[in-house]
């Protein structure tokens, strides 16, 4: 379970988060929906301990991430997998080396045949075959990069998977594919997922719960249909941009 309580964060004079509260139950997918600059990525980086809050706390599965430092934080991160907006594949490593990286670090000395088998297994989960193992990230399409990034996030079998704008910049077919991957990953592996997005259509497809973030605060959160019926003017206006088209 992920619990974010009264989270505040400023960068210089720019107050990004203003007392944000969010709760994600274990084994569910919560999509944090918001416009660019609303503080979504800053929130995500607090959850994984890449940023420290000015005030408030982040607790993941009973561990207060926001108060950890050094080795304790490093150890706590072993329960996370994260898919970055730009995939963030290591461009000096092949696909195999990228996907194997978290596993090699978690289980140093893992036999090479077991390592290869687990990498191939996770690539199959995202519909990629062994022919991509020796390719470099620069040789992959945007959709393939996303899939390799997801395989890398899942290979060490995390309990929590974080997605930063997973469908940004993808074509509609690949977007639909990535949405399906997020849903199937939750169903097959039972992971807790947090998705940061401004893609309203995708959000309604993958979310068990939705949270609308604006100006550093969560304006509405709950099951997607409940959030759709929110009376908050900003939430209505934001969702109308999509539902108004339909």
């Amino acid at each position: 379970m992920i619990e974010v309580s009264d989270l505040w964060k400023a960068f210089g004079d720019n107050q990004v988060l203003k007392g944000l509260d969010l709760r994600i139950e274990r084994g569910t997918t919560c999509v944090v929906l918001g416009a660019s600059g609303s503080g979504k990525t800053v929130l995500l980086k607090h959850v994984v301990g890449l940023l420290k809050p000015d005030r408030g706390r982040v607790v993941v599965d009973g561990v207060e991430i926001s108060s950890l430092e050094g080795k304790a934080l490093t150890d706590a991160r072993r329960s996370f997998g994260m898919v970055f907006q730009g995939s963030a594949l290591f461009d000096s490593m092949t696909v195999f080396e990228n996907v194997a990286f978290p596993l090699r670090e978690k289980q140093r000395g893992i036999p090479s045949d077991e390592l290869r088998a687990r990498v191939v297994e996770k690539l199959r989960v995202v519909d990629l075959g062994e022919e991509v193992l020796e390719l470099w990230p620069a040789q992959l399409s945007g959709g393939m990069k996303k899939r390799v990034a997801l395989a890398r996030a899942l290979v060490a079998e995390p309990q929590v998977v974080l997605y930063d704008e997973p469908t940004t910049g993808l074509d509609p077919i690949t977007t639909d594919y990535v949405d399906s991957m997020i849903v199937s990953t939750k169903e097959r592996l039972g992971v807790t997922s947090m998705v940061i997005s401004h893609d309203i259509a995708s959000s309604f497809k993958v979310a068990d719960r939705l949270a609308v973030l604006h100006d550093g605060r969560i304006l509405a959160q709950g099951p997607p249909e409940e959030v759709r019926g929110s009376r908050d003017p900003y939430v209505q206006k934001f969702l109308a941009l999509w539902f108004g088209k339909q």
Binding site: K45, D75, M82, F84, F90, P102, K106
Partner: peptide, 12 residues
């Protein structure tokens, strides 16, 4: 390109 952030999230 967030590769360093990615490394940190992998406990490295």
């Amino acid at each position: 390109t967030e590769q360093i952030d990615a490394m940190e999230t992998m406990a490295v």
